[in-house]
Design a protein around this nucleic acid. Structure first.
Lengths: 193, 193
DNA sequence: GTTCATAGACCGACCGGTCTACTCGCGGCG
DNA sequence: CGCCGCGAGTAGACCGGTCGGTCTATGAAC
């Protein structure tokens, strides 16, 4: 996993961005190659095929997500519920930087889950992992009394992730962040009541 | 609009199902043609090109959605808030019949909104139309006192649609209806409180 | 010299789209 | 009534271009 060659890293970095904008099937290898100036031989030296490449691009995407989770959920200066919200707000900021193209997991999940079990399972695992980490923080929020006593943290975490993906899609369609903010407002107003 | 030829209708019907499963770019004309037994000449007689076909498949999808909206939102035997929920439950049933492949709007919206403005606008308009119809029903719910007095019906309707799309994606990934049901449970429990 | 990586020509398959030929049903008309 | 003309629709061969993927040759590092 560690110490990847710079060529491979560059392919994945660029590929991640192109996959987000163009989707998987629309994106051709030639576009990746031309935009990086890397020849085809190098590509197939580092990746078994296009699918392998796509799956590894998701891995790279997830390292960023986990970094954001680390930054927020471990921040002891904030109450647990605020940490969760802060994570989503951080992600929202990153969406802005990309022109509101939404979430790579949602994009590839929608496009490919009917056609490729590998991608379907991968995306599901990633979303499940995110929800899992949020759930432990929501559990702390229940302990702290910031969420009602009977709350199921795991279920709420899944709910948050799922609704977030929907809001991200709408924000992609409108090229506008409002759906994201309104979804967060609704959940955190209701949850704390 | 009325009295479409049966050939065209068959192409759209089959195309709608194939688009839901395979996505737009993965789906080739040949697959549509072979699965219907209709030759290419007929296809290009009825449609300008593949994009035109896809957009008209969305139109067909929307006639079904509007029919479900008609059936639920005009049902005076139910209180307005229950009508809205019933609509989503009806849609959920139809997802089950297709093997939980989710919503065509969400699928095509995610896949194509970075690449085709025509599809992006089309999907956005469709979602907006659905939310609009739900909003008037939610407004009745406010009037009836089933939603808090200060509630913004339009905002809630958009929220519902967006979160629904997210839950539909997750249900597609998991091939399982739970995300849909849990999302509805959360909204309607919170909203009525 | 061996290994990892770069380099890009090359391949068959398939893509969306065009083109021509043919069939069929119907209205007009002597 | 028979015949014709014509447009709508059917049929599929064919096209250039691009796709993902392979192959061989070369370059750089140790």
């Amino acid at each position: 996993m560690a110490a990847t060659s710079p060529t491979k890293q560059q392919l994945l970095q660029q590929g991640m961005a192109l996959l987000l904008k163009n989707g998987y099937n629309y994106l051709g290898l030639t576009e990746i190659l031309e935009s990086t100036g890397i020849p085809k031989g190098s590509f197939y030296h580092h990746f078994r095929n296009k699918e392998d490449f796509g799956l590894q691009a998701i891995d790279l995407y997830m390292t960023g997500v986990h970094a954001a989770l680390d930054a927020c959920l471990d921040d002891r200066t904030l109450p647990p519920l605020r940490r969760v919200r802060r994570f989503f707000e951080l992600v929202q900021d990153s969406y802005q930087g990309e022109g509101y193209l939404g979430c790579l997991l949602g994009g590839l999940g929608q496009e490919l889950s009917g056609v490729s079990d590998a991608f379907r399972q991968k995306v599901e695992e990633c979303m499940s992992a995110i929800a899992g980490r949020l759930a432990t923080c929501l559990d702390e929020a229940v302990q702290a009394g910031d969420l009602p006593a009977g709350t199921n943290p795991q279920a709420h975490a899944e709910l948050l992730v799922n609704c977030w993906e929907g809001a991200a899609l709408r924000s992609r369609l409108r090229r506008d962040p409002n759906p994201l903010g309104q979804m967060l407002d609704f959940y955190f107003r209701q949850a704390s009541a």
